[in-house]
Design a protein around this nucleic acid. Sequence first.
DNA 1: ACGCGTCTCCACCCTCGGGTGGAGACGGGA
DNA 2: TCCCGTCTCCACCCGAGGGTGGAGACGCGT
Lengths: 213, 213
Amino acid sequence: MIRVLIADDQRVVREGLTMVLALMKGFEVVGTAADGDEAVTLAEALRPDVVLMDLRMPRCDGIEATRRLRSEVPETKVVVLTTYSDDRSVLDAFRAGARGYLTKDASGAQISEALRQVLDNHAVVDPAVQRHLIDAIATEPTPRSRFPDGLTPREAEVLSLMAGGLSNAEIASHLVVSEGTVKSHINHLFAKIGARDRAQAVTYAFRQGLTEP
Amino acid sequence: MIRVLIADDQRVVREGLTMVLALMKGFEVVGTAADGDEAVTLAEALRPDVVLMDLRMPRCDGIEATRRLRSEVPETKVVVLTTYSDDRSVLDAFRAGARGYLTKDASGAQISEALRQVLDNHAVVDPAVQRHLIDAIATEPTPRSRFPDGLTPREAEVLSLMAGGLSNAEIASHLVVSEGTVKSHINHLFAKIGARDRAQAVTYAFRQGLTEP
DNA sequence: ACGCGTCTCCACCCTCGGGTGGAGACGGGA
DNA sequence: TCCCGTCTCCACCCGAGGGTGGAGACGCGT
């Protein structure tokens, strides 16, 4: 028996889904929530196998609720079931920890099949949103590589410390060299990367992926 | 007639795929390539509708080839067909611009169906790799949201210009206010975000996602 | 042996950035 | 009505940061 929690702000949807799942063998709707907060609270109490989560909800949206569920009730899986399927939503949902993404065009059979798949540790993406997902991935910035331009390892090191918010004096003591040396490295690397001051250098460091957010 | 280019370093795979597609109605294999370089060169000459791309190839791997195809021959779509389905490969492939990802367990029917789907502007993900894709998305760092702490819109604006590498004077003229005002905003926002100097502030801006890499 | 690049250090200069402590104007909420 | 937050501006101070022009030591490749 698969224990399901339904989170959706519209009553008709909650009741409709409850009906649909009642018809399917092997499902039990253990609770319904009308907003994200309630979804999290109920999930903590009821420990369902899976939460069918709408995205657009008052108080705390589905993305946020999913994120919180990930940390509060990690055993419970989340399947998003929503009307919207724009690029951002899809990506955000999976980033937040959802394991499935369905639209409200899905049939009862598709939903129940998706739930089974997810509990079987698969991921489920509605074919209709597949494309959005791939688009979103393709257009997102690719994390950068190695260290670029003519930067020497030492200079890159100084740069990354600088991006960490250290002053010249702090960098110096961190590297156990004089502050003069640090300034020297800094002037060299400024020239190489075309920076005028540390702010620009830090920006460069992030864009090049030398520093992890 | 769908015109296909096959890129794989193993001869048996190239010939096997050619056979399989020959059996399917509506496909024509217009060429085969044994490495990424050749794939790009042939695609430029033959302008196929789609490239079936292996990932592991000598000289220039499938990811790199896909990336180059995106910019050189944008009309040609890329479908990855490979043995490996680890998290990174999948994500990298889509980032590079692939529209489909199949494993070599796929049947001829599945492959041909996938090609049709992709040419119909859908994205195709082999169910077996679906999970890797979602995992990879979930474990990647999430770009941050709105603007946080007690930052006023104006302060956030100043911060983001600062992160863009502008000096106080430049920020001032950009916002059409005096430099003193900019300093004032800056001092306020430093206090709010706990920064000591602009380097730390820029770092903060990136980590909070106020500035796009 | 020689040259090259990197890392280290020094001294000097001066600007820009950061800190302090104000103050006036506007708008919205209590 | 008054208060509070935001945005604007000012004056003054000072030190860290950025720019210049060196120089010596080490390691590496030719």
